[in-house]
Design a protein around this nucleic acid. Structure first.
Lengths: 198, 198
DNA sequence: TACGTTATGAACTGCTCAGTCCAAAACAAG
DNA sequence: CTTGTTTTGGACTGAGCAGTTCATAACGTA
């Protein structure tokens, strides 16, 4: 009944997400998005309405895929709570050496967006707040399980420990963007995890 | 012998620094810088050459003042190593509630710049690398002192612990920009510091 | 008071930005 | 093959960008 699209919307979204991830929202022009996706301006605006809405969809897609993978690790019933946390941190270290551009880590899109946009973009802030709540809930649950089993110290509230681990993850992302190598990130992760068992 | 300036260069630099701090490099226009400093375009370009050079000077000024204050705390001979680290973290929590705009934390300019520019601005990356090295050196020295005195565990290398604490500081900054309140930041700091004494 | 020098404001430059428009193209359905 | 609907590419728009130019103002000095 009408002319069909010649591109895959999700592939285009992935390409746009990567562009925003590498350079940030402000420094990515609509022309950059055309180049990255291979689409013309008309197709981009016809499909995604505006740069800002495209960014929101890209951020939402990043959050869905990233948090899904991490929650999967955290809910892996085949591993003990501490093993799950260790696996989570191992994945985060790995991701910093998989997601690179020009020899530098590009960090994490949620951290980057928190820094660049959270203070002046309500829609982005909302997506980030929801993601943060989900992450903290998943980490807290694992910590509570570890506390029940005695593997994790109960001297601190599970919620506090979850916020602590989440902050360390963010700090590892910043450290990687600042040039930290794999050994440095691994040592940070081990130090954080060791502190749970004291 | 010639017409004198009607403004104070350092005050102008402070105003520009604040503008970059709140909105980032890309989202701060030269017009914003004129408004923030109260200077005309001619005065800005006559004094600072370009937006990029003004940013470099603003970042350098931020680093000098911030790192100076923190190193002062870390080298305070009147306090024990652990007390110095506690004072450092207390200052960082405080700073997140002093440096705000529209009810949000504006974080730390070095962290913000690491995220926004480190991957594509060699001059900024150089300033950040130098600052990071100085921070890690100062923290490492305190940790070594604490390890000698027995207050800080020697099971981990002082350099690793310094990178860990520095990552936690970065993570606290991100957490604050993500909306964490004072109690949450304090708990993160306490958890990190407690892990040193195990 | 006249001169040399620097600072300043306002107008201006060329360019890039996000977003729009429209004619042509590509299909499905009748 | 025609008709109706959507996609597509390319030209276009007005606004805002970083940076320049220049006439004039404001000073120290002689």
């Amino acid at each position: 009944m009408a002319r069909p699209r010649t591109f895959d919307e999700e592939r285009a979204l992935d390409a746009a997400m990567r562009a925003f991830w590498v350079n940030g929202y402000e420094a990515t022009s609509t022309q950059d998005l055309c180049d990255a996706t291979g689409l013309g301006r008309s197709s981009i605006y016809n499909t995604f309405s505006s740069k800002h809405e495209l960014f929101q969809r890209a951020l939402a897609r990043y959050i869905d895929s990233m948090t899904a993978g991490q929650v999967e690790i955290l809910e892996d019933a085949g591993r003990s709570p501490m093993e799950r946390l260790r696996a989570l941190f191992a994945r985060i270290v790995d991701s910093e050496f998989e997601c690179r551009e020009d020899g530098h880590s590009i960090g994490c899109l949620t951290v980057n967006t928190t820094v660049e946009l959270a203070g002046r973009d309500p829609e982005a802030a909302e997506l980030l707040a929801r993601d943060l709540a989900a992450r903290l809930a998943a980490i807290s649950a694992v910590i509570r399980a570890g506390q029940s089993g005695g593997d994790i110290s109960s001297t601190r509230d599970a919620g506090d420990l979850a916020r602590f681990l989440n902050a360390v993850i963010g700090g590892m992302r910043i450290s990687a963007q600042g040039g930290a190598d794999r050994a440095a990130l691994t040592a940070i992760a081990e130090t954080a995890l060791d502190s749970l068992t004291r």
